[in-house]
Design a protein around this nucleic acid. Sequence first.
DNA 1: AAAAGTTACGAAATCGGTTTCGTGTTGACA
DNA 2: TGTCAACACGAAACCGATTTCGTAACTTTT
Lengths: 340, 340
Amino acid sequence: MKQKVTIKTIAKELGVSTSTVSKALKDSHEISKETKEKIQAYADLYNYKPNNLALQLRNQKTKLIGVILPKIVHHFFSTIIKGIEEGAHKKGYRIMVCFSDESHTKEVENLKVLSNGSVDGLIVSIANETLANKEFKHFQDLVSEEIPLVLLDRVVDDIKCDKVVVDDFGAGYKATKHLLNTGCKRVAIITTPEYVNVGTLRRKGYEKALLERKIAIDKNLIIEIDENENIKEQIRPVFDHNIDAIFAVNEIYAAKSIRIAKEKSIRIPEELSVTGFTDGLISEYSTPSITTIAQHGLTMGKQAVEALINRIENESEKYSPKTIVISSDLKLRESTKPSS
Amino acid sequence: MKQKVTIKTIAKELGVSTSTVSKALKDSHEISKETKEKIQAYADLYNYKPNNLALQLRNQKTKLIGVILPKIVHHFFSTIIKGIEEGAHKKGYRIMVCFSDESHTKEVENLKVLSNGSVDGLIVSIANETLANKEFKHFQDLVSEEIPLVLLDRVVDDIKCDKVVVDDFGAGYKATKHLLNTGCKRVAIITTPEYVNVGTLRRKGYEKALLERKIAIDKNLIIEIDENENIKEQIRPVFDHNIDAIFAVNEIYAAKSIRIAKEKSIRIPEELSVTGFTDGLISEYSTPSITTIAQHGLTMGKQAVEALINRIENESEKYSPKTIVISSDLKLRESTKPSS
DNA sequence: AAAAGTTACGAAATCGGTTTCGTGTTGACA
DNA sequence: TGTCAACACGAAACCGATTTCGTAACTTTT
């Protein structure tokens, strides 16, 4: 890289001190008009830009927010990033995005590096591996160092920090209830393993809706997907249990279910209703388009960053962690029967 | 934030100098075993972590790569980010992601801030507005400051830097030729306005394929979409021109075209073949699934970051800009007829 | 004409590290 | 006993800014 113009360069070249240059560029009243003009002219000519690192070190703040997500090629998470970035930008902050790839090690590593003064605060959605192993020491360390932290979507109760979550329980309840309301009797759920708490909550909502109608929970209708195996083959068996509806906890599972139904020439929604989760492009562009729970990733990102910046900029105030619950809506499309 | 433990704290507390602490923590031979152990123990106890900003300032490098993309909620771009992040991570770099939202102003602003010492180099995909206005001064400034820069996908010839592009011309040609080879005669193209050079290149490829077959270009079959208007309504008129194939330059346009065909009860692929671009989830999960050009965003991201880091770490070498062309494949699916 | 106040600038500390260059204390060797 | 190297550590410069405080040279007031 070319030798950068610094305040020192200007000072030496113009025969003044660095303090004078600094003050002149900030249009301080301490400096005479002529000196200011001379310095400003030189700075413009050589395209002087103050070094960010130096300023950050001096001011002890970076105006930077660290974001750690499990993945990026995913409609929900990329929407969250968009929300965070928009909110941050509005307040004059920038974001540093890292990915854990669902790996605990990578999450810890990212957390360590970012918390070394690189950022003013962090927004994290916890990796599945971390959730599965229940290893949260890295977060506890962060909290005890009093580094502002907001957990997003995938959260853990005993970490003392602000949280932004979807009302997964309510959403699961809403989705299942809609299926029951439109005449379905035997509703299967395609969900995640138990350690993914969002999956669990959605399932609990599903169970509540069933029990309200005095429908017994049928274990055969509950499929926990192992993402390392072929998803379609794991779903297929549930079709043997005389079902008339499927509640899938994400849109991929929903799309795969619809594929199987089509192969079996089962008509949707007449013979089988399907509801997904995450209002992504698949749900919108699939045929039939999929009724789904819209998660409002944009809103979640914005709320998270708002809470974080609030915490960063009001250090002095006594702090008590809040949890923001974002309610989700059922977006009705073609894969379910019209409500009566 | 809690008062951080710095080298100074340790030095004062243990009655030694900061130099001693620094050396001890780096296991320097200059320091006696006992002193080292004492300092190390204290550092561990109080969870000392060296301040990144200070290091970056001293070393004059940040191990950070700035990434500016037009948008994020988009399969191609999020895949690119993934590729960049993976490549960067492998070499010990982190990424700072910003978005221009296709706006020139935001692009300039992001570029300015990131080039103030915050990052060692930049990867940029140019905003549409910038391309439309042909305003590239901010890039020229960057180049003349010799800040390592790699342009990705959306590039401009007269910026002197490394570039990574898709073979859009070849891809357009390939896609169109496939349609012709499978018996289509009247192929429409749904493309972007002329200033988006990737769209233009794809269109040129389309035209070449037609001319090779001595098929005259029919202006009625070329639709330039204005994204500010209703896309579907802009596509609809082309169906009145007796077409038997559509080449859409992205998957949204392809999906919308298929929707219209379905509404008109046109059978796909028997009566109408459709080819998309960008191998995203829509193409995969739509019914029929869409034959498409796979852009290899992951590869592009990796290549870009490799070129960039190479440039960063070999400053001394004389530098001549390279352009890496990533070839794209046609992924055959259900929306086109089987090749004979 | 002496005292006080302005004006315009510079020296030095600071942020948190690293690194070069001394230097005082040992012990070994001639 | 004098010389020299090795050892263990500290002082100070440096990265690039900001900011407090001090002060020389004038100007104004009394």
